[in-house]
Structure formats: C-alpha cells, structure tokens
Design a protein around this nucleic acid. Structure first.
Length: 242
DNA sequence: CGCGTTTGACCGGCGC
DNA sequence: GCGCCGGTCAAACGCG
C-alpha cells in the first residue's frame, strides 16, 4: 500500500507541476471553495484532502487580501472517498472515531441522502463529518471531515501509555498527520547484525508490542483507518466466503 | 432505562 | 421580501 501510495503521489506531483494553472483555476467562480486539493489513491479507494485554510500556493494576490483577512473558522476540510457496496445504505464509515449522527438531508445535487455526524468521543470536539454517496458511482461514499480532533484517537488512549517515549521499545513509529507521510524508524539497534537486539526482536512479546504500537500509530489517522476498513470490506464483498 | 438513531421542523444564508 | 436549500435541532422511536 505504501508503495502504491508513493507511486501515485509522485504521479500526482508530476501532474501538478506540469499544469499549475489548472490547479489555480479549480473553480474561479466559487469564492469560498477554491482551495488547494491534494488527491492520493489507496488501491481501490481515493483520499482527497482539501486545505481549507485558504493558503494558496500560487498567485496569492489574485484575490483581495483586504476582503479575505477574516480567519476561516474551519481550518481543515478533508474528503475521503470510500468504496463500499451499493446495497449498504447505512452510510456508516468506520474510521476509528466515535461518531454520532445528528441529521440527514437529501440534497438537490445528489439523490442520495447526506448524513451528518459529530464526534461523540469528546463533547468539545469540533469535528464534523458529512457522508454522502457519490452521485456518479453509488458504490463510492464521500466522507467530508471538517475541523480537527482536539483529542487523541479513542483506540489510542490505552495503547499510548506503552509507547516508546519511555524507551521501552527499541524503535519508533510515527505518522505525520499534517501530511501524507508515514515514518517507520527502525534505526535504533533493532536490526544490528549479531547484536543483542537480534534476539530481542524475535521475542514474541516484543513483536506483539511492535505490532500494537504500529497499529496504534496507524489508527491515529482517521483517513488511514477509513481507507483500511474500506480495503478490507471491499475485498470481503468482492470475494465473499463460500 | 439509557443511549444512539431517525426524521420532520426550524434556522440562516443566498439568489432572484 | 420571498423562496430555495443546506445545515442543525430536538422529540419520537428503537434497540440492547
């Protein structure tokens, strides 16, 4: 998955660098929705992130800076395209967070109903999520995330205490949530040949801790968990057990 | 009985 | 000003 992601990301950057004008002219008529888009693809699902801050990379003075001085109350808007079965009408996208549905509407541009979710893990969490089936392909669900979680991942709270900040593990796994970067740091004498750590990594307890840590770090990213859930569900639905 | 979902009502922004 | 439309509220409902 990482290899596919890297390949597609390089292709995306290449595409963007070749046609920067088209990026800036995404929607010149719409004043508020013309932000930079970043689209990556994860096998059979596509993840698209919209930077809602409004920090245009190119031609920042094209719009009146005086009129656009107001701070955007929604600093981050991200879209996640999830491929599911068309028969699944629940519109429930499992991304690891706890969501509470507070509304559903049938919009004009899309016959499919749009569901509105709020993060129910923390009462003060400002994150909202809109889930709507794609009008073109009913097997694709578009989840739009608004805002950022002001709390840790629910599944992270228990595992986080056993992380390597106390030096208990000879490695570290980190995910840069601000960008599509996953870093796996295994440089800490883990694979030292002939070293004492060679026996340590083979211990089932260490492997279990490593798996737990990697899983917890990955599940911190809601986009990854959504993509993973989609991949698994997609495979199951495509190849149902006999 | 508590919690989450459903669903119609309500509200505010926007265009005509 | 009016109507449309997207988003939110909240009471009713259902389930464990």
């Amino acid at each position: 998955m990482h290899a596919d992601y890297s390949t597609l990301r390089s292709q995306l950057f290449d595409l963007m660098s070749t046609s920067p004008k088209e990026r800036g002219l995404v929607s010149p008529s719409t004043k508020r929705k013309s932000e930079s888009l970043e689209t990556i693809s994860f096998d059979d699902m596509t993840y698209e992130r919209t930077d809602g801050i409004g920090n245009r990379v190119e031609s920042p003075s094209s719009e009146d800076p005086c009129k656009r001085l107001r701070e955007d109350p929604k600093p981050q808007i991200s879209k996640v395209y999830v491929k599911t079965d068309p028969s699944d009408t629940s519109l429930m996208v499992k991304d690891g967070y706890q969501w509470r549905k507070y509304g559903q509407k049938v919009t004009r541009d899309n016959p499919s109903p749009r569901a509105y979710f709020r993060c129910s893990f923390a009462p003060s969490c400002p994150v909202k999520k809109k889930v709507q089936r794609s009008a073109e392909d009913t097997s694709i669900i578009v989840a739009t995330y608004e805002g950022e979680h002001n709390h840790v991942h629910p599944s992270q709270t228990e595992v986080a205490h056993g992380s390597c900040h106390n030096g208990s593990l000879p490695c570290s796994v980190s995910i840069n949530s601000s960008g599509p970067t996953i870093t796996l740091d295994l440089t800490k004498q883990v694979f030292s040949p002939g070293g004492s750590a060679s026996g340590e990594i083979e211990s089932p307890e260490f492997q279990r801790l490593l798996v737990d840590q990697m899983a917890s770090s990955l599940t911190r990213d809601p986009n990854f968990t959504a993509a993973l859930a989609t991949a698994i569900s997609g495979r199951i639905l495509q190849h149902p057990p006999a």
